[in-house]
Design a protein around this nucleic acid. Structure first.
Lengths: 154, 154
DNA sequence: TGCAAATGGTTTCAATTGAAACTACAAAGG
DNA sequence: CCTTTGTAGTTTCAATTGAAACCATTTGCA
C-alpha cells in the first residue's frame, strides 16, 4: 500500500447492504401502517405497541411493557401519559408496591385496538403478498432467528 | 378482572408480527454498527449513507444523493452541511446550473470511508453468520423483493 | 422577451427523542 | 429502626427530526 493514498476504495453498495435494506423496508412498512390508521386515531407507533401489549397481557407494569415492546422506559412513560390522558389506558397503583403501576386497556382502548389490530394484520398480509409462500416461510424463520434474544435458541 | 389473555379481542402478537420484527431487527443492527465506528468518527447514519453514495458516484447533486439514500432532501442538506464543515465532502456549484451542487469525497472523506466500509461489511457478516447459507440466500432474495421500487420488476 | 411555474437547496419553528437527573418507594443489612 | 442501595417511573434539557416556508435559479411558454 503506497503511503498517503487509498488505492482500493471498495465502496459499499448500499442497495445490497443488508442493514440498509432492512432499514428501508422496515421504515416503509411502518410508515404505511402509521399513515393508514394510526394517524387517523392520533396514535403513534409507540402508543400502538403499548396498547397491543396491554391487549395481550392485562395488568402489566410500565417496566414490563417496556420489556415486551423493546422500548426504553422513558418512551413507555410518555406513551402511557398520552394514552391515559386520552382515556385509552387505565392506570392504578399496585397494592403491594406503590412504585409500580398496574395497566390495562379501557373500553375505549379496546375499541381502538379492535379497529387497528385487523388493519395492521391486513397491512402485514399486503406486505407478504409480494412474496411467494416459500419466501414467506423462510422470512418468518429468518426473522425469528435474527430477533435479539434469540441467539441461544436452536 | 383477572390478568391474562383476552382471546375474544384477537390481540396482536407483536413478537410474531412481521413489521414489528423488521423494526426491531433493523434498529438493533443499525445501532450496533453506529455504536461501533460511527460514534468513534462522529458520523451519523445519515452522514455515513451520504458518504457511501458519494464513494460510488462522484459528482452527484444533493437531490441525487437523496434519491439514492432514500433520505429526504432536508436530511441530506443537513448531513452535507456537517460533512462539508468537517472537510469530508467537497461541494462546488454546477457549471451550467447554479442551483445544483456537485459533490464528492475529499481525501479525508476517503480515509474515513476506507475505514468504516470494511467494518460495516464485517458487521453485516456477523449478522448473517446467525443464518445458514440457505437462509442467507433466501434473505437476499426476499429483501430485494421487498425493497420499495421493486414492485414493477418481475 | 417576460412572467408564471418548477426545481435545487436551505432555513425556521415546532414536535419528538435521548440521556441524565430526579422523586418516591422498597428491600436488605447492620 | 435507620441507613444504604436498588427499582419504578417521571421530568428536564439539549439534540434531532419533520413540515412548511423560503430564496435563488432555471424552465416552459405565451
Amino acid at each position: 500500500m503506497s503511503p498517503g493514498r487509498h488505492p482500493d476504495h471498495a465502496p459499499l453498495e448500499l442497495e445490497r447492504f443488508v442493514p440498509y435494506q432492512l432499514s428501508i423496508v422496515s421504515n416503509t412498512v411502518s410508515q404505511t401502517i402509521a399513515d393508514d390508521y394510526q394517524v387517523r386515531h392520533d396514535l403513534s407507533v409507540t402508543e400502538w405497541r403499548v396498547m397491543a401489549v396491554l391487549a395481550r397481557f392485562d395488568g402489566l407494569s410500565a417496566r414490563e411493557v417496556a420489556e415486551r415492546t423493546a422500548m426504553d422506559k422513558v418512551a413507555v412513560s410518555r406513551a402511557l401519559a398520552r394514552l391515559v390522558a386520552a382515556g385509552r389506558v387505565r392506570r392504578h397503583t399496585h397494592a403491594n408496591d406503590k412504585r409500580r403501576s398496574v395497566l390495562g386497556l379501557t373500553a375505549k382502548g379496546w375499541a381502538i385496538h379492535d379497529e387497528v389490530a385487523p388493519m395492521a394484520r391486513q397491512r402485514e398480509r399486503e406486505l407478504l403478498a409480494r412474496l411467494d409462500s416459500d419466501e414467506q416461510a423462510w422470512l418468518a424463520r429468518i426473522l425469528d432467528k435474527l430477533m435479539p434474544g434469540d441467539q441461544a435458541r436452536g
